[in-house]
Design a protein around this nucleic acid. Structure first.
Lengths: 148, 148
DNA sequence: CTGTATGCAAAGCATTTGCATAATA
DNA sequence: TATTATGCAAATGCTTTGCATACAG
């Protein structure tokens, strides 16, 4: 999601676009790979930006609930990345290096119907992640497979 | 994985099959839905089994590294379930009461191929959870929808 | 101005670790 | 008997909360 859309969204939802929120967004926006809350905090401090860790947590929580950010819980580590695709999508995560690629397809709506038929549950959401090895890490597969 | 295979594995790997490990295995084996480390601990205490929480953590870690157990990291909650190698499946989780129903179908293998084609990643695993409201909780939907 | 967000410090929690004791093979 | 695992208590580390202050709209 680019900065213009980001600003629009905040205006639409009548959410205040505070300094910490903007900084958090920008830092994620510059990032090449997913970042933890602490990395985000330290990166901003290095750039002499005044921000509290707490606000980063709060911003990330807000962004996540708005669908702006994807939270990657991979074993014990938690990282965040900006969603580049605006529509609903899923991810594939490299088990070795942690890189994430977004998948711009989701045919799961048929499944939701099936789930409702079978269980009686009203399905409102789902979560799907693929795990594997990116091209660069395929050779490492054997040595890494027990990790996480 | 049944108890016979479990015992065999431990013998093969020359791992000691201690009381806590066996209890942890059995409790998971009896469980209808995935359990957290604490639930496991409390269930065993209720049954007057002597065990420490620490040992449960250590057993679960061992089991996971052996591929006996699957760790479900759902937002902030972490639960474990025995891998039933014969039928891979997914879950639907009630957002209101937390009940879990297992879904005995998974047609995702076609997707894995597609993911590989599109991204070049070698897919080795995936994780799919549905969220919704069970019959009893559908009336609560409005008040609970912001949670998690 | 008025409500909302911030930042610090402290609290909370799940998980891990150190170490003496106990159980396993 | 010699490893190896256990269990308690304490430590760790990530995340959340309370609350007075500062900021955005």
């Amino acid at each position: 999601m680019n900065i213009a859309l980001f600003r629009n969204l905040f205006r639409e939802k009548k959410l205040s676009l505070s300094h910490p929120r903007l900084l958090t967004y920008q830092e994620l926006s510059n990032a090449v790979s997913p970042l933890s809350s602490l990395e985000l905090y330290q990166n901003l401090l290095k750039k002499s930006k005044k921000i509290g860790l707490t606000s980063i947590y709060r911003s990330l929580g807000l962004f996540e609930s708005l669908g702006i950010v994807f939270k990657i819980t991979n074993g014990s580590s938690v990282k965040y990345k900006l969603c580049e695709l605006e529509n609903h999508h899923h991810h594939i995560i490299c088990k070795a290096c942690g890189n994430v690629v977004e998948l711009n397809f989701c045919d799961i709506s048929d499944w939701s119907k099936k789930v409702t038929e079978v269980t009686g549950y009203q399905v409102v959401d789902h979560q799907l992640n693929f795990f594997g090895f990116c091209k660069a890490c395929i050779p490492l597969q054997r040595s890494q497979s027990a990790e996480r």
